[in-house]
């Protein structure tokens, strides 16, 4: 059994097989770090397939489930979390008054799969919480998500709060979700909007300077 087979099994959504492989590898004293590396490589492939329109929501959600099952198996033997090369940091959340999270979760998954360290603040996040997160986590990019028309105002308030805190020029802000478009971008004062998760990843890469 090789790491290559594990990568393929995860990338091809063979859930039970992949989890069993990890158990067998652990029984054969394969290093957890090597397994985690294989998981990461599989997530890269899954991310690519999503970008190409081969994979959709079922695959992203199942990939997340497979990954957490594997981490659960590895946990007892993980002495330290392995160093993973990260391109940059992103703070993300659904803005105040809105509790929709599907879109935000996809963007979070895709950013993570593409090598970003993502701090997900959850849903119904007030502007102060974004400000606090930007101050402490020091991201290069902030992603604001929202589905309702009410979110337009919450996005604008959040960006104004970043301005008042003197943090606006330290971050690039992208918005997405629902009927977000250029009108909404201009109104909220965001730097850009993304139509989908792929666009969000492209923006983050561009701003952080990842090729």
């Amino acid at each position: 059994m090789s790491e290559q087979e594990l990568i393929q099994a995860i990338a091809d959504m063979r859930e039970e097989e992949a989890v069993q492989m990890v158990r067998d590898m652990m029984a054969h004293d394969v290093k957890p770090a090597a397994i985690l590396d294989a998981v990461r490589k599989a997530m890269d492939i899954i991310g690519e397939r999503y970008e190409k329109g081969v994979y959709f929501l079922p695959e992203l959600i199942l990939a997340g489930e497979i990954m957490s099952q594997i981490v659960e198996i590895l946990k007892p033997k993980l002495v330290e979390s392995p160093e993973i090369k990260r391109y940059g940091r992103v703070v993300i959340g659904t803005v105040k008054g809105d509790i929709h999270d599907i879109g935000k979760n996809i963007v979070t998954f895709m950013l993570d799969a593409n090598g970003f360290e993502v701090l997900d603040l959850g849903v119904d996040v007030p502007p102060e919480k974004f400000v606090e997160a930007v101050r402490e986590f020091q991201p290069q990019v902030v992603g604001l998500s929202g589905f309702l028309t009410l979110a337009f105002d919450s996005m604008r308030e959040t960006i104004q709060a970043l301005e008042r805190a003197g943090l606006r020029d330290k971050v690039k802000v992208m918005i997405g979700g629902g009927s977000v478009d250029e009108h909404v971008r201009a109104y909220t004062g965001a730097d850009a909007f993304g139509k989908d998760a792929v666009a969000g990843v492209a923006l983050a890469k561009k701003w952080i300077g990842v090729q």
Binding site: T149, F152, G178, S179, V180, D181, H183, V184, A186, Y187
Partner: peptide, 9 residues
């Protein structure tokens, strides 16, 4: 007619 246009246009 998009919500964004009705809201902000």
């Amino acid at each position: 007619v998009p919500s964004s246009l009705l809201n902000l246009g």
